[in-house]
Simulated scan of single mutants.
Amino acid sequence: MADTFTIKQGDTSPALARVLETAQGPIPLEVGDRVTFSMRRPYGGPVIVDRQPCQIREGNVVVYFWHDRDTAVPGLHEGEFQITRADGSIETVPNGGYLVVNVVETVA
């Protein structure tokens, strides 16, 4: 089952917080690692969030803080995190699909 995050159209809260993991378990993050978040419309649609920086918090929690333009378009979106290690190696999570971001349309 895909991981789904739901937020209302135009909202900037709550932030998107995740412990990044693969089928082998949580991914340890090290000092010097950088994590970004990207999101697009499904099936190769336009990119809405393009490699925006995330905070790395204690316990390997990664947090992306939304901008109002990120949630302007209602519907399902595909998201992913990219870890760039201090040595330059790159890992994308999830590596077997996407995080589903459901932007729910507002009433007015």
Rank of each mutant, 00 (worst) to 15 (best):
A2Y: 14
I7S: 05
Q9D: 03
Q9P: 03
G10Q: 08
D11E: 00
T12M: 01
T12Q: 07
S13H: 01
S13F: 09
S13P: 04
P14R: 08
P14G: 13
A15G: 02
A15V: 04
A15L: 12
L16H: 12
L16T: 10
R18K: 04
R18Y: 09
V19S: 11
L20H: 09
L20F: 09
A23T: 15
A23V: 14
G25F: 05
G25R: 07
I27H: 01
V31F: 00
V31M: 03
V31G: 00
G32K: 00
G32A: 13
D33M: 06
D33V: 05
T36H: 06
T36F: 03
M39D: 09
R41L: 10
G45M: 11
P46D: 15
I48G: 01
V49L: 13
D50Y: 04
R51V: 07
R51A: 04
P53V: 07
C54S: 08
Q55W: 00
Q55R: 07
I56P: 00
I56Y: 12
R57N: 06
R57A: 00
G59K: 04
V61D: 09
V61Q: 07
V61W: 03
V62L: 02
Y64K: 03
F65L: 14
W66T: 05
W66V: 07
H67P: 07
D68Y: 10
R69V: 01
D70Y: 02
D70N: 10
D70I: 05
A72V: 12
A72P: 00
P74S: 13
P74V: 14
P74Y: 00
G75A: 06
L76I: 14
E78I: 09
E78W: 03
E78M: 14
E80L: 09
Q82M: 04
I83F: 12
T84D: 03
T84Q: 00
R85V: 05
R85E: 09
A86G: 11
D87R: 03
S89G: 14
I90G: 07
E91M: 09
P94V: 06
N95F: 05
N95S: 10
N95V: 06
N95A: 03
Y98D: 15
L99S: 14
V100Q: 14
V104D: 15
V104F: 07
V104M: 14
E105K: 05
V107F: 01
V107D: 12
V107L: 06
